[in-house]
Design a binder for these strands. Structure first.
Length: 877
RNA sequence: GGGUGAUUAGCUCAGUUGGCUAGAGCACUUCUCUUACAAAGAAGGGGUCACUGGUUCGAGUCCAGUAUCACCCACCA
C-alpha cells in the first residue's frame, strides 16, 4: 500500500491520465458493456462548432454525465452520444470576421464554393478543440459515435424528412412577410427575433382626403414606410371615422390614391385610431392587406435601402429616408405633432441589427396543416405528460407556445449550411420546382437537363431539431436499441429553439417523442447575478477553473445549491468549497489506505459488526443509499449529493473514522469507503477513480456496481447506543467550552441511569475509552454514584441518562443558572404548546394516529427533562 | 398587454405529496497546528420563511390578493 500519498489532492496531476484510461478501456461505448438491465441513452446537445466550451456547456454536460454514470453503474447499457452543430448563421458571422481579419477577404471575394469548404474546415478544427475541452469535464461519452450535423449520414436523414414533409403537404414555398436581417442578409424565423424596448417617437401625420379640405391623421413610429402605404384603416366601431370609410385619400409625397378601410384589428384607443397600412413592411398590415386585397409595394429592399418605388427617396437608407420624409412633410405642414413613445423594436438574435419586415419568397413549414398538425401532435404529448419535464412548470410554457406557434420559415439566404434538395429547370421556371435528394437527370415536366439547385440553406435548427434520431440512425442498431432516448438536458433558453421543435419533428418522423425525460438547467450567473456575456466580460472559463480547482470541484459547484431550471450564481469561492471537499475525501481515503492490511471490501457480514459505531455507520450508510436512490429517481441530484456529503463528512469522517482510530475494524472501514467511492463516482468521477486505483482494485470504478444496502438485521441496538455516546461526548465538549475549561485539564464524569443494560453497554471497556478520548478530556467515568452529584458539577439529562460533569471549582455558577433558566423557559414554551395541541379535540380526532403518538412521546420526554432541569436549578441556588 | 420564476440567517442558496423547536456553504465569535486533512478540528451566535387575508387540528410548503426584482412571450401602428 502506498503510504506516501501527498497531503493535498492534486487533480491536475491525475485527471488526464484517468480519462485516458477510461477511453482506452472502451467503457464509454455501450457495445463493450456487459450490462443487461435495460438501456440509458442521452443524445448530447451539440454545441456550436465555432468557438469553445463555456460554463453553460460544462453545467449541462455535468448533469448528463451524472445520470449517465449512475445508469452505467446500475447495469444499464449506457450511451452518451456526443456531437457538434454547424450553427448556420452564427458560424457564418464568426468565420466571415475571421476571414476578414486574417486574410482581408470578404465571403464574396472567396466565392460560395470555396467559402463553404473553408468554413467546413474551420468547424472541424473547432470541433477537435472543443472535444478536448469536453473530455476535461469528464463526460463519459462514446466518441466513436460522435456526429456533426453536416456528416453525410446524419444530413441524409434530415433531408429525407424535408422530402417527406413536402410530400405530406407540410412544406410550402410562398411569398409572405418575414423578418429580414439586413446585416446577415437573410430571413429569420420568429424565434430568432428578439425584442428590445427602445425609446422612440410617434409621428402624427395628416393625410388629406380626396376632393376635400379635411384630413385624417395617422400615427406611426416608422414614417418612411408611408411611401408604401396602400390604405388607411380604422376600426368599424369607431364613430369618429365611420363616415370616412370607403372614401379615398391622397397619400402625401407619393400622391397616390388610397382607400380608407375598416378592420376590427385596429385598436381604437391607440394613437388617433387611424392606421396607415403598409402591407409589404409590417406583419399586421400584411394580414390586413391580404384580407382587403391591397397591393403590396416593396419600398425597402434587402439591404434596408429605399427601392425604386420610393420615388425620389430611392437609394436612401431607412434612416436617411425617415429624416427626408419628415422634413418634406413639415414643409407641407402635414406633420401634426411628435410624441415620445417607448416601444419594442425587433432585432436580430445573432447580431442585434434592427430587423426589417419584408415580403419575400421563402420556404415554410405549415405547423398546423389539415392533414397533420405538427403543433397539435406535439402539444398532446406534452399535455399528456408522456414526456416528464423538470421542472414541471415548463410544461405549461411549452403548451402555450405550441398554441401560438405560427408557420416556421426554414429557408436562409446564407451560404453556410445544407442547401435545399430542390431543383429548378431552366425552361419550366421556378414555379415548377422539383424536390429530390439527388439532382434529377432531367426535368420531369419537359425533360430538360439544365437544372440548378435552390440556393437557400436550411435554418440550422431544422437539422438540429432532428438530432436524436438522425444520430442514432447513423450507427448500427442504435435507433432500435435506444430510441426514444431517456434524457434530454438543456439550458432553459433553448426551450423553444430546440426542445419544442425537437418534440414536433420527432413525433412526426418516428411516431414517438424523442425523449422520455426533459430536464432544464438554469442560466449561469456571476456573483452579482448578471448573465454571463462576452460584452460584459464576466465569463468564467471552465477550463481555467478545472486547472485551478479540478474538474470534480467544478462539477460539484455547477450542480449544488440549485434546483432544476433555476438560475444559479457561480464564482470562485464556491468552486473552492468543493475543492475543499474533494480534499477532505482525499484525506479520508488517505487515512484508510494507510491502515495496515486495509482493503476495500464489497460485502459485509453480521460478524464483521463489532461495536456500536460499526452498527451505527452501516445503518446510516443504508439510509443514505436508500435516500440517494429515491432522489435520483426524482432527478434531484443536488439533494442527493448533499445527503452524501453530510454522510461522508459529518458521519463517516467526523465520527466513524475517529472511533476507528481507537478500535480498528478494517472490515467496516473498507466496506464503508468502498460504498462512499461508488456513491460519489457519478458526481466526482476523477478523484474516486483515482482512489479506487490506489486501493488496487482491478476493475475500474466507472463500470463497478452501484451499492446496495447491507440488509444486516442487527444494527438497531448498537446504533442507539452509539448515538447515546455521541450525545454524551458532544455534551461534555459543550459544557467544557461554556465553562472555559482548557483542553489540558482532565475531568471526571458520572453517568447515572436506572436502565442497567444500557449502562452495561456504555461500561464496556471500548466505549468507555471512546467517551474519554474523543476530545472530551475525560479522565474518569463513574457510574451511579450518588456522591458525584454533590461535588461542584454540571448536570445534563440525556434521555435515560443523567450526566454529571465534575468541573471542580471551575463552574461559573451564575452563567450555569442563566443557561438552565433559559433552557427551562424554552422547554416550557414548547411543552405548553404541545399540551395545548394534544388537548385540542379536533386535533386529536383529525390528525393521523402516528403524528399524535409521536407528539405524546415527545411531550412525556420533555416533561421529564423539565423536572430534572428544575431540580438541578434548585441545587445551584 | 400576457406569462413564468424569485422573495427563507449578514451573503449565496436548499427545503418532492402540509406534521414535532426551519437547514447547508461562506462570513462571524471562541478555542485547537490532537501523526488523514489548518483546503482542518471542537463549541457557538444569528431567521415573525416579503406582506395581507383564507383553507386546515396543523402552513416556509396549499389558495387568493399586494409589493419588489428577474426573465420569457407579444403584429399598439
Amino acid at each position: 500500500m502506498n503510504k506516501e500519498l501527498p497531503k493535498i489532492y492534486e487533480p491536475q496531476k491525475v485527471e488526464d491520465e484517468i480519462y485516458a484510461r477510461w477511453e482506452k478501456s472502451g467503457c464509454f461505448n455501450p457495445d463493450n458493456l456487459q450490462n443487461t438491465v435495460g438501456t440509458h441513452c442521452n443524445v448530447l446537445p451539440p454545441p456550436n462548432a465555432n468557438g469553445e466550451l463555456h460554463i453553460g456547456h460544462a453545467s449541462g454536460y455535468t448533469i448528463m454525465d451524472i445520470f449517465g454514470r449512475y445508469a452505467r453503474m446500475n447495469g444499464k447499457k449506457t450511451l452518451l452520444l456526443p456531437g457538434k452543430d454547424h450553427a448556420g448563421i452564427q458560424t457564418q458571422v464568426v468565420f466571415e470576421k475571421k476571414l476578414q481579419a486574417e486574410e482581408g477577404l470578404s465571403r464574396q471575394e472567396v466565392g460560395r464554393g470555396e467559402f463553404y469548404k473553408k468554413t467546413y474546415a474551420f468547424c472541424l478544427d473547432r470541433a477537435n478543440y472543443m472535444r478536448s475541452q469536453e473530455k476535461k469535464i469528464g463526460i463519459s461519452a462514446d466518441w466513436s459515435r460522435e456526429k456533426f450535423t453536416l456528416d453525410p449520414d446524419v444530413l441524409k436523414t434530415a433531408l429525407e424528412t424535408f422530402v417527406k414533409m413536402h410530400e405530406d403537404g407540410l412544406i410550402y414555398k410562398g411569398k409572405r412577410i418575414i423578418n429580414w436581417c439586413p446585416r446577415c442578409a437573410t430571413a429569420l424565423s420568429d424565434v430568432e427575433v428578439h425584442h428590445k424596448d427602445t425609446p422612440g417617437k410617434l409621428y402624427f401625420i395628416k393625410y388629406p382626403l380626396e376632393n376635400s379640405e379635411e384630413f385624417i391623421t395617422v400615427a406611426t413610429t416608422r414614417p418612411e414606410t408611408m411611401l408604401g402605404d396602400t390604405a388607411v384603416a380604422v376600426n368599424p366601431k369607431d364613430k369618429r371615422y365611420a363616415k370616412l370609410v370607403g372614401k379615398n385619400i391622397i397619400l402625401p409625397l407619393q400622391n397616390t390614391i388610397i382607400p380608407v378601410i375598416a378592420d376590427q384589428r385596429i385598436d381604437l384607443s391607440f394613437g388617433t385610431g387611424a392606421v396607415k397600412i403598409t402591407p409589404a413592411h409590417d406583419p399586421l398590415d400584411w394580414e390586413i392587406g391580404k384580407d382587403h386585397n391591397l397591393t403590396e409595394i416593396q419600398i425597402i429592399d434587402e439591404k434596408a435601402l429605399i427601392t425604386e418605388f420610393g420615388g425620389k427617396y430611392a437609394g436612401l437608407t431607412v434612416h436617411e429616408a425617415r429624416e427626408a420624409v419628415l422634413k418634406d412633410l413639415e414643409k407641407l405642414h402635414l406633420l401634426e405633432k411628435i410624441e415620445e413613445l417607448s416601444h419594442a423594436v425587433s432585432i436580430c438574435e445573432r447580431c442585434k441589427t434592427i430587423l426589417e419586415p419584408l415580403t419575400s419568397s421563402q420556404w415554410f413549414i405549415n405547423v398546423d396543416a389539415k392533414t397533420y398538425s405538427l403543433k397539435n401532435e406535439a402539444r398532446k404529448v406534452v399535455e399528456n405528460a408522456q414526456i416528464e419535464i423538470f421542472p414541471n412548470n415548463f410544461q405549461k410554457v411549452l403548451i402555450d407556445w405550441f398554441d401560438n406557434m405560427r408557420d416556421w420559415c426554414i429557408s436562409r439566404q446564407i451560404w453556410w449550411g445544407p442547401q435545399f434538395p430542390v431543383w429548378y429547370c431552366e425552361t419550366c421556371g421556378v414555379e415548377k420546382y422539383i424536390v429530390s435528394l439527388e439532382k434529377p437527370k432531367a426535368c420531369p415536366h419537359c425533360n430538360g437537363t439544365k437544372l440548378t439547385q435552390d440556393e437557400n440553406t436550411f435554418d440550422t435548427w431544422f437539422t438540429s431539431n432532428q438530432w436524436p434520431y438522425t444520430t442514432l440512425k447513423a450507427h448500427g442498431n442504435d435507433y432500435e436499441d435506444f430510441y426514444p432516448t431517456d434524457m434530454m438536458i438543456m439550458g432553459r433558453d433553448l426551450l423553444f429553439f430546440w426542445a419544442a421543435r425537437m418534440i414536433m419533428l420527432g413525433i412526426y418522423k418516428t411516431g414517438e417523442a424523442p425523449f422520455k425525460n426533459l430536464f432544464f438547467t438554469g442560466l449561469g450567473l456571476d456573483k452579482e447575478g448578471h448573465k454571463f456575456s462576452k460584452s460584459r466580460g464576466n465569463g468564467i472559463d471552465p477550463l481555467l477553473m478545472i486547472d485551478k480547482f479540478g474538474a470534480d470541484a467544478l462539477r460539484m459547484s455547477l450542480i449544488m445549491d440549485s434546483a432544476p431550471g433555476q438560475d444559479s450564481r457561480l464564482y470562485e469561492e464556491k468552486i473552492e468549497t468543493f475543492r475543499n471537499f474533494a480534499n477532505k475525501l482525499w484525506n479520508i481515503s488517505r487515512f484508510c489506505l494507510s491502515q495496515e492490511n486495509f482493503k476495500l471490501v464489497e460485502n459485509i457480514e453480521n460478524e464483521d459488526v463489532k461495536t456500536p459505531a460499526d452498527a451505527w455507520i452501516i445503518s446510516k450508510l443504508d439510509a443514505t443509499i436508500t435516500e440517494i436512490n429515491k432522489l435520483f429517481a426524482g432527478k434531484q441530484i443536488a439533494m442527493a449529493a448533499d445527503v452524501l456529503k453530510t454522510f461522508t463528512w459529518n458521519d463517516f469522517a467526523d465520527w466513524y473514522v475517529e472511533t476507528n482510530k481507537l478500535e480498528k475494524n478494517q472490515a467496516v472501514l473498507g466496506y464503508v469507503l468502498d460504498k462512499i467511492l461508488r456513491l460519489w463516482h457519478p458526481f466526482m468521477p476523477f478523484i474516486t477513480e483515482h482512489i479506487w486505483e490506489l486501493a488496487q482494485i482491478e476493475k475500474m470504478l466507472i463500470i463497478s456496481a452501484w451499492p446496495k444496502i447491507s440488509n444486516l438485521s442487527t444494527l438497531e441496538i448498537g446504533k442507539n447506543n452509539f448515538e447515546m455516546i455521541q450525545n454524551i461526548i458532544t455534551t461534555v465538549r459543550n459544557v467544557r467550552t461554556e465553562n472555559k475549561i482548557e483542553l489540558g485539564k482532565k475531568i471526571t464524569i458520572c453517568l447515572n441511569c436506572e436502565n442497567v443494560s444500557l449502562l452495561d453497554a456504555l461500561k464496556s471497556a471500548f466505549q468507555e475509552d471512546l467517551i474519554k478520548r474523543l476530545k472530551t478530556g475525560i479522565e474518569t467515568i463513574k457510574y451511579n454514584e450518588a456522591g458525584a452529584e454533590l461535588e461542584s458539577s454540571v448536570k445534563r439529562t440525556l434521555g435515560e441518562i443523567d450526566l454529571h460533569i465534575h468541573l471542580a471549582n471551575a463552574i461559573d455558577t451564575d452563567k450555569e443558572k442563566e443557561k438552565i433558566t433559559k433552557e427551562i423557559e424554552n422547554i416550557e414554551k414548547f411543552v405548553s404548546g404541545l399540551t395545548e395541541r394534544l388537548s385540542n379535540e379536533t386535533f386529536v380526532s383529525k390528525a393521523p394516529a402516528q403524528v399524535i403518538s409521536q407528539q405524546k412521546e415527545t411531550l412525556a420526554k420533555k416533561q421529564a427533562e423539565l423536572i430534572e432541569l428544575k431540580k438541578h436549578l434548585a441545587t445551584l441556588s
